[in-house]
């Protein structure tokens, strides 16, 4: 069934995963879906292609290893689960079984960031740092629920592995009008134009960055928002372009450790290419185990919520 939606509406990214995989199962008879006991939304695929659906139970390491075995034999396995466990408990399988032989295993999951109120065992906050470190791995983090479908679709023809990070995926804001932006893995999206500063962001906090830019516009500030949904390979050209076009004033906001994620990726490009910046601020999770609370409360508490984003952007705009 095609997904229907309205711009600005809430949509479940998980349902997009389910629908997209069920669709793709028809085009790709070598597409397998695997899960370690997660995935009510995979039911559609499971019912349509039971012979290509594998649930190994609570066994993330085996799940990723089995996926690699399938991929060695010419299949396209998609592993779907909760990212804190896929990115950490199965990290060595991801690295040595999938990335080392560069197999086309797609890892897609939820609970990237301080989301879902599960406490620190259930927040993937180091995952992007870990995944970006792996040779051959492509790393993405998606906010717009409809983009999830497009990224999964594009990943089907990729040779190597990809990591696709979502937040909770139960209720996500549709950010972009269909066809409004070209969505291409490896290319950032200018989600909002602006000339005074650029906010680079990804995943669930793209919506927050857009709200911050809208607030700042009321005071006459023109703030660009870049949805850098691909962290690796990073869109270096866009970073250089934004430095040139927004006065070298950067804010990075992400639902991930402030060090090791997108801010670090951007800083690497800035340093490596000798890009001159006027101001650079990074907002993200500090070195704490964050505790319980609703997503927004946790972002506020740990200094990367809406108010903090607005304040940081004002500071970089004011910087001499």
């Amino acid at each position: 069934m095609p997904v229907t939606f309205t711009f600005g509406e809430m949509l479940s990214a998980r349902s997009v995963i389910g629908t997209t995989l069920a669709e793709l199962g028809e085009d790709y008879d070598n597409l397998w879906v695997l899960t370690p006991d997660i995935g009510a939304t995979l039911v559609e695929f499971r019912d349509k292609y039971p012979e290509r659906f594998v649930d190994v139970g609570l066994a993330e390491q085996a799940c990723v290893g089995v996926a690699a075995g399938l991929a060695y034999d010419g299949n396209i396995p998609v592993v779907s689960g909760m990212l804190p466990f896929l990115s950490m408990r199965a990290l060595e399988q991801v690295r040595s079984d999938v990335c080392y032989p560069n197999l086309p295993v797609k890892i897609i999951g939820t609970h990237g960031g301080l989301v879902g109120n599960g406490g620190s065992t259930h927040y993937a906050v180091e995952d992007l740092a870990l995944m970006c470190a792996l040779t051959n791995m492509t790393v993405t983090s998606i906010g717009d629920p409809l983009m999830v479908g497009e990224v999964i679709r594009q990943s089907m023809t990729m040779q190597g592995p990809i990591y696709i990070r979502l937040a909770v995926g139960k209720k996500d804001k549709v950010l972009y009008e269909p066809g409004e932006h070209e969505i291409r893995i490896g290319k950032g999206i200018i989600a909002r134009q602006g000339t005074d500063a650029t906010i680079f962001t990804h995943g669930t906090v793209v919506a927050q960055a857009l709200d911050a830019a809208a607030e700042l516009a009321k005071d006459g500030h023109s703030v660009r928002v870049v949805d850098m949904f691909t962290l690796k390979p990073i869109d270096e050209e866009l970073i250089a372009q934004c430095a040139a076009e927004t006065g070298g004033r950067f804010v990075i906001v992400e639902d991930h450790l402030a060090y090791g994620g997108l801010a670090s990726r951007v800083a690497d490009v800035v340093a490596d290419r000798g890009i001159h910046l006027t101001a650079f601020e990074r907002l993200g999770i500090p070195q704490v185990y964050a505790g319980f609370g609703e997503d927004e409360e946790l972002r506020d508490k740990h200094g990367y919520g809406l108010a903090a984003t607005i304040a940081a952007t004002q500071r970089v705009i004011a910087a001499a």
């Binding site: 594998v54 390491q61 290893g65 075995g69 399938l70 060695y72 034999d73 060595e92 040595s96 079984d97």
Partner: peptide, 18 residues
């Protein structure tokens, strides 16, 4: 590609499923 121990059997399961 193997070497890290305990990885072969999951890979073999995947190949057998295939």
């Amino acid at each position: 590609s193997t070497g890290s121990l305990g990885h072969g059997l999951p890979l073999a399961v995947g190949m057998a499923l295939s």
